[in-house]
Design a binder for these strands. Structure first.
Length: 566
RNA sequence: GCUCCGAUAGUAUAGUCAGGUUAAGUAUUUCGGCCUUUCGAGCCGAAGACCCGGGUUCGAAUCCCGGUCGGAGCACCA
């Protein structure tokens, strides 16, 4: 058997492996077994491949039937599910930009894992930096819309800027325990010391002193930058970034008011204390976030230990990129602000609103992210992959229409009679109905006039036959000014197939509707669509045959569509 | 520089934890062919990968060590 698979030469190693798997008890005698196998193989390999085949057919006829199995792609199971009564995950964006493909992993994995395990999915806005990463009011709502579009419904929503008293309470607790201190050092001094494993002077202060400083902090006695609450960790921790991390700092609340709570607070929590406390209080069982947070987990575990909490399970996935698109919030924000992009939904961007505009379905994004899974390696996705997922979804639903770019008139002489055609809206689903056109030849020459694409007649010589799809065949004569001259050839589809004629799409003159298609690079294609497109509603995804899928954006006297992909 | 991660075809992923049933499975891509009144879909076929070097072992994609390359963190950002 093995010999046949390998062109008449059996492989000892593979056979040995197979036998051992089937009969574990032979392991002890492996050397003898190996010898035996080699002898047998030597004999078998003397035989011709046909002889080998015959033996197999005689003895094990079923062995040659290959079988194929189809597996469904799904997520690996979550770690330690059994430890928790129910699974809770969260997605926690800073509302400083719209969501984009880079966030897709956090959102879809968190949501998917929650749903798969009958758990809860929480949305938490992490808007605790009114200064450096200023939250912007419009994005709270935009993010909710993005999630809804993706089909990731949230079970609960929290906003951190509503929760400052909670963070204060725990800060107080940690200070009272002596597990945190108010540090008044200049950041540079602190850094210099901590790198050398030296505690700063504030670290050793009495608990009472620290609480006193904390009260002064809250009262507003310190200016921004003058004091910061630090969580004690291990001064000798190998990673300097872990040592005594900052938990709360002072921000000038007049200069930097918060968009939601204004100037109410000047002491703001930093990521690790806010997210750390919230994850516990909200009962998060599995944190799914980017690997840039790997050391944050280490930092937070100190705080969890002080508070007697168990740290949730974590999944730290790698960065996700897609070829040729910026997935950096700052670049997107800057580009939109400067007018480089037409808006958050500029087709060059990989924001969800842009993808939506281009007719990329949320299902396809979901499939792709689940396909990629939760591993820590960075991935660079290719658009082809996303398109392929999307195509599978929209191909089945999208109606077909004709779009003629580079229109030129085709005059067909000698059309023998009136043609009434029914063009299928979908090639595989005739139940979807038809587009109906009537072609009436005019004048003595019985002429019918159409719009066709200039590119379809470029290398044509006199006498070549073209098939107007679903209509009839014409014989090309010449190009005369703005017209392509042709004559009626026959109505036979079979003939066109047989002669391997080119099949082209067409629009009957008078049935045209101006149309522009915006490409993913913002280039604009002007052309005409068939009149049946008149009633298409915005957001509909259709396929222009021999061109590609597009999403209808506007349809008011002129059809404006965004190109998806082939 | 310090501290962590990671590396399977062009892209993505399975297999790695528990070494042998796998000369590496799947999707996409590309190329042939069939089919189809689209250059779409579908069907059939082909191409294409275990980062490198050592070690352990009868046997390594899998375990160990070293290197290379890539990424992240080292903020009073999240």
């Amino acid at each position: 058997m093995n010999a046949i698979q390998h062109k008449g030469k059996a492989q000892a190693g593979a056979i040995l492996g197979k036998i051992i798997v089937e009969k574990q008890d032979l392991k002890a005698k492996i050397k003898e077994l190996s010898k035996l196998i080699n002898q047998i193989i030597a004999e078998i390999n003397k035989l011709s491949i046909d002889e080998q085949k015959q033996i197999v057919i005689d003895k094990w006829p079923e062995a040659l039937n290959k079988e194929k199995k189809i597996e469904k792609k799904s997520l690996p199971p979550l770690a330690n599910i059994e430890k928790y009564a129910s699974i809770v995950t969260r997605f926690s964006p800073n509302p400083d930009c719209v969501l984009h493909l880079g966030s897709a992993r956090a959102i879809i994995l968190s949501h998917e894992y929650a749903r798969k395990n009958n758990g809860k999915f929480i949305l938490r806005f992490e808007d605790t930096d009114p200064k450096v990463k200023q939250p912007i009011l419009e994005f709270y709502e935009k993010i909710r819309e993005d999630l809804a579009w993706l089909g990731c419904n949230v079970d609960a929503e929290y906003i951190q800027s509503d929760r400052l008293p909670i963070y204060y309470e725990y800060a107080h607790k940690l200070l009272s325990q002596g597990n945190a201190y108010v540090c008044k050092c200049v950041p540079d001094d602190f850094r210099r010391k901590i790198i050398k494993n030296q505690a700063c002077n504030c670290r050793v202060l009495a608990i009472e002193k620290n609480l006193e400083r904390w009260n002064l902090m809250l009262k507003g006695s310190y200016l921004a930058g003058e004091a910061v609450v630090r969580i004690k960790t291990d001064i000798n921790h190998p990673n300097p970034a872990v040592r005594d991390w900052p938990a709360l700092r002072i921000i000038d609340n007049e200069k930097f008011p918060h968009p939601r709570v204004g100037s109410k607070y000047h002491v703001w929590p930093l990521y690790n204390i806010a997210a750390g406390i919230d994850d516990h209080l909200m009962g998060i069982t599995h944190i799914i976030r980017g690997k840039e947070h790997l050391t944050n987990a280490v930092r937070q575990k100190y705080m969890y230990a002080y508070l007697g909490w168990n740290y949730p399970e974590t999944i730290h996935y790698g960065r996700l990129k897609i070829t040729g698109a910026y997935l950096s919030k700052s670049k997107i924000v800057q580009g939109v602000k400067e007018g480089v992009y037409t808006g958050w939904d500029d087709p060059r961007l990989a924001t969800f609103v842009a993808l939506k505009k281009r007719g990329i379905t949320p299902e396809s994004i979901k499939k792709m992210i689940i396909d990629v899974g939760p591993k820590t390696a960075d991935v660079t996705l290719s658009w082809e992959n996303l398109y392929s997922h999307n195509r599978k979804i929209i191909d089945l639903q999208s109606n077909r229409y004709f779009l003629v770019l580079n229109p030129i008139k085709l005059r067909v002489k000698g059309v023998p009679s009136t043609f009434k055609v029914n063009l299928k809206l979908h090639p595989q689903r005739s139940e979807k109905g038809f587009r109906k056109y009537t072609i009436v030849p005019k004048g003595d020459l019985k002429t019918a006039t159409f719009w066709i694409d200039k590119n379809d007649i470029v290398s044509l010589s006199k006498g070549s036959v073209l098939r107007l799809m679903d209509l009839f065949n014409v014989e090309f004569e010449n190009v005369c000014g703005n017209f392509v001259e042709a004559s009626f050839n026959s109505g036979s589809y079979a003939e066109a197939r047989k002669s391997k004629s080119k099949f082209i799409h067409w629009i009957s003159q008078g049935e045209e509707l101006p149309c522009t298609v915006v490409m993913p690079n913002t280039k604009i294609n002007e052309g005409i669509a068939e009149s049946a497109c008149k009633n298409l509603k915005p957001d509909t995804i259709i396929q222009f045959e021999r061109f590609g899928f597009v999403r209808v954006h506007q349809n008011d006297k002129k059809l404006v569509a965004y190109y998806s992909h082939k």
